[in-house]
């Protein structure tokens, strides 16, 4: 099995690693004058400025908090819906699925702008709670669509087994359902987290100046690429983490 390994490595390098090298080089470039292929001087200025001027610490913590909370909420809310969507194919199945998937199709900037209208009155604009709710609106359909594939008849069969062996409902959830859907649950959570983490338009309008990582990053792209690259590396961390977790899950099922 040498051949597939080689193709995989080549694909990974060409599609993923090689384009990203520029970020790493740029982030640590102190001086990088034009025709040179590599910087003349390396240093940590990019990170220093990111934390000093770019509010990187607040941006990372806000982004992290909002992503974790909105995705956590989305998973809790999507769970029962995914269960019943997977179990029944009633008359309303298609209509409900369409309704729940609709936010996926509408530009998040539009959703955010519309929500602001009410959030200003409710005192939610510019707060993390407001951002969590706005992100929840966008994240929920992603989480729901992934989670729906978790509840196959096999899971129901395993739950029946546990019922018939005297396991009460809460313990069934802990000992049977969650372990059985763990891979899909992880995938749904990762996807939801990444969708929230990457949100730009919603955070821009609803956040009203609250520092969030992508918002902090964008202005530096034209003005100071080194700072932009430093912030981008922080922005990249969850994606890498997601890849590591996904590959571990893949190895487990192999």
């Amino acid at each position: 099995m040498r051949e597939p390994r080689r193709i995989a490595t080549a694909a990974a390098v060409v599609l993923f690693a090689a384009p990203l090298t520029v970020l790493v080089i740029q982030a640590f470039a102190e001086v990088w004058r034009y025709p040179a292929l590599l910087p003349q001087q390396f240093g940590l200025r990019g990170f220093r400025v990111a934390f000093a001027e770019g509010d990187a610490a607040a941006a990372v913590s806000n982004s992290l908090e909002v992503a974790l909370l909105s995705t956590g909420l989305a998973v809790l809310i999507a769970w029962p819906a995914a269960r019943s969507l997977a179990a029944t194919r009633g008359r309303w199945h298609g209509a409900v699925l369409l309704l729940l998937a609709l936010p996926l199709l509408v530009p998040p900037f539009a959703t955010g702008t519309g929500l602001t209208e009410w959030f200003i009155r409710l005192g939610l604009a510019g707060t993390r709670a407001g951002l969590v709710l706005a992100h929840l609106t966008v994240v929920l359909p992603y989480v729901l669509l992934v989670l729906t594939s978790a509840f196959s008849p096999r899971v129901v069969e395993l739950e029946e087994m546990a019922r018939s062996l005297g396991t009460p409902p809460l313990r069934r959830l802990v000992f049977v359902t969650v372990p059985s859907v763990r891979a899909v649950l992880t995938a749904a959570f990762l996807l939801g987290f990444l969708v929230s983490w990457s949100q730009y338009g919603t955070s821009l309008v609803v956040g009203a100046g609250l520092p969030m990582l992508p918002l902090t990053l964008l202005p530096f792209i034209g003005s100071d690429p080194t700072v932009a690259a430093a912030l981008s590396l922080m922005f990249l961390v969850p994606a890498i983490l997601a890849l590591v977790l996904a590959s571990r899950a893949t190895r487990e099922t192999l």
Binding site: E160, M161, L165, G166, P168, P179, S180
Partner: peptide
């Protein structure tokens, strides 16, 4: 009574073992 309080045990057609 709900299934888990009936004191029955079922062996199904498929083994239904927990893979983890």
């Amino acid at each position: 009574l709900p299934a888990h309080r009936r004191g029955c045990a079922v062996v199904f057609q498929e083994p239904r073992l927990l893979p983890h």
